[in-house]
Design a protein around this nucleic acid. Structure first.
Lengths: 114, 114
DNA sequence: GTATTATATAGCCAATTGGGTATATACCCT
DNA sequence: AGGGTATATACCCAATTGGCTATATAATAC
């Protein structure tokens, strides 16, 4: 799976987004992360595995605990992808025309979605 | 399904991202959208259905054609969600501290993930 | 070593997904 | 009406997902 695929897929689940939101405040153990949810510990571990293999969290070791910390770089990549649409959702079609001009100019090099 | 769920789930597929990228250039019919892909027309129609029910495209009518156009507003919402992590991926922990202070101050009102 | 705590793994299950083919529907043209 | 073109729908299928319970592993505490 592509990095962008994995990032967006990981973000598509509200439990996982809530976990990431919690991790803004700092590292947390699996138990701490599980606490707000009416969900079994193994299910949380599965979600963490998805987040980890998408590179959105990394894990340490503190005695029996495996604390999770946020790794936000893949989110930056997702954000970059979304930026291409900003001109459209902001309704700024002048800038959009400029963007399209630039895209046309680059048609010689490989384009597609990257 | 939540709007954010639907948006991120739709973006998790590279075919769908490529379709959206194509639609930056303007409206396109199903045939036009299908052309770059080694994939059957019904499969493309399925992808379009996913994009449409996520609100990322809307469709018109032009004789037999059902042209698709980009609806970027849900992408703005996704972008807003990602913005919360910008301070982290940019490594700006001073600003992050300020953010955490604000979050703490708002603890009285409902927070959670939204 | 044995118990306790924290986490991971295995296996089950129903639902969803992403592809396919075959067929239906909608619209245009003569 | 009949033929072509564009798109949608109905199924089929294998793989994935997201939940569960039961169990295994890891590290600490006694």
């Amino acid at each position: 799976m592509n990095q962008l695929d994995a990032t967006f897929a990981a973000l598509a689940d509200p439990t996982r987004r809530a976990i990431l939101a919690r991790l803004i405040e700092g590292e947390a153990s699996v138990m701490e992360l599980a606490e707000p949810f009416a969900m079994s510990q193994p299910s949380i571990s599965k979600h963490l595995k998805v987040l980890e293999s998408a590179g959105l969290i990394s894990r340490g070791r503190d005695a029996q605990r495996r604390p999770c910390r946020l790794e936000a770089k893949p989110l930056a990549e997702a954000n970059d992808w979304l930026e291409r649409y900003r001109k459209i959702w902001e309704g700024n079609f002048q800038r959009l025309d400029a963007l399209l001009g630039a895209m046309q100019a680059n048609k010689t090099a490989g384009d597609a979605e990257q």
